[in-house]
Design a protein around this nucleic acid. Structure first.
Lengths: 224, 224
DNA sequence: AATATTGTGTTTGGATCCAAAGTAGAGCTT
DNA sequence: AAGCTCTACTTTGGATCCAAACACAATATT
């Protein structure tokens, strides 16, 4: 995929995510091509990719439309990520953590501890957390013995709201987000504990529950 | 997607599945275009689709290669289908079976019973089973409250060995396959039972176990 | 002799052209 | 006036052309 081809896909992803193209409405190749300043060819290629990613949908016999997502779809996508990451964690626990892998995970756990040690959250901490969180999840999924699980998660994460790093939403209320990240950190540590002890079922369930943190945990403290 | 575009994708899927293009080797647009008797354009579009499906993989900076799958990948893909169908079953159990849905599932259960009632298996029974099995699974997944789970399963099923209807392999040894289908039927009935009683966890676990039937159950009877 | 650089051939990406399929609207017929 | 049909326009799909990127090889330079 060339740079500009990639950029057409990702630019479209962004535009769709931002709601620039109204869900449910037909989206024409020529219109998009003109807006992005390219010819129809890369747009046609990008549409096929986005269709597979689930962001676009065939509109009858003619062209594509932006897919619309309901509340239920969001919940479902989060659950899907949960069971898949849970599967990865269980497999990892069953096959046993290698010393190198334990080391790697310890790094991200430790960075999380340090980030939260000072007792409150700053603006720039958000990106740091986002990064270490991503790495922690990536490491587990990437070590589950086959790229198949990671692929399935990656495809699911193309639904913009489903990705693991879409936890922190409200960077205005950092004091309230702090509690959320603290809980996320604890869950990371518990998962790591279960992995180290080969507790497959426990690792799986912890990971599944952990997926919900961006979704429902706000309600606990009246943030929902 | 036009007819011939669809056919390029599915023809390529078939050729890849049959091992016509050696895994790991680069696959050129022009070569494929000539073999299929079309121009490069539909091939380029098809490559993007097949990349997303996971059958093709970027070969460095230049073009694509057929992805190779290990034994571990096959196992993983089956487990992925298991957890996803398990998730669908649990959600369905939790939300409660509507009378219409119970009716629908009863149909496929009943057809399965009738098929196996005579105590042995004929050649043409294989297709009948394959169909009713597909419908049973489709009904559950399609009723889980959101198309997101079904999409994830569909994408996973593009890996040819992962699909639920790849159970029956050996149509020469019908007497041995009979026991397998009998067990599959029992599992269908147990899942249905759990669904009717709102037993989410049980439905989920049964469905997860059921995914393994095409993979490991042969060993039980020395078929592996 | 080894490495860097340049040149050629191969392959992919982007633009454009043409054909085919579809949709909508206008006009005609009953 | 309502319904049907034919036509014109819109939009997508396929083919081809051209440019750019890349790989490999050969030659030159240190």
């Amino acid at each position: 995929m060339s740079d500009s081809d990639k950029s057409v896909v990702s630019r479209l992803r962004k535009l769709i995510g931002e709601g620039f193209y109204p869900p449910g409405e037909r989206i024409g190749e020529v219109a998009v091509a003109e807006q992005l300043g390219v010819s129809r060819t890369p747009v046609r290629l990008a549409f096929r990719t986005l269709e597979q990613e689930g962001l676009l949908q065939r509109a009858g016999k003619r062209g594509f439309m932006v897919r619309e997502f309901t509340e239920a779809d969001v919940l479902c996508a989060v659950e899907v990520r949960g069971v898949l990451e849970g599967l990865a964690a269980r497999r990892l626990a069953e096959q046993g953590l290698s010393p190198a892998l334990a080391e790697e995970l310890t790094v991200w756990i430790q960075k999380g501890r340090e980030l939260l040690a000072k007792g409150y959250l700053e603006e720039r901490d958000v990106d740091v957390w986002s990064e270490l969180n991503r790495r922690f999840h990536e490491t587990i999924v990437g070590s589950a013995g086959s790229p198949v699980i990671g692929d399935a998660i990656a495809r699911n994460n193309h639904l913009p709201f489903a990705a693991a790093d879409s936890i922190v939403i409200d960077s205005e209320a950092l004091d309230r987000e702090y509690r959320k990240l603290q809980l996320a950190q604890t869950q990371h540590e518990l998962v790591f504990q279960a992995l180290r002890h080969g507790e497959g079922a426990r690792a799986e369930m912890l990971m599944r529950e952990h997926a919900f943190i961006g979704l429902r945990y706000g309600e606990l403290w009246g943030l929902g």
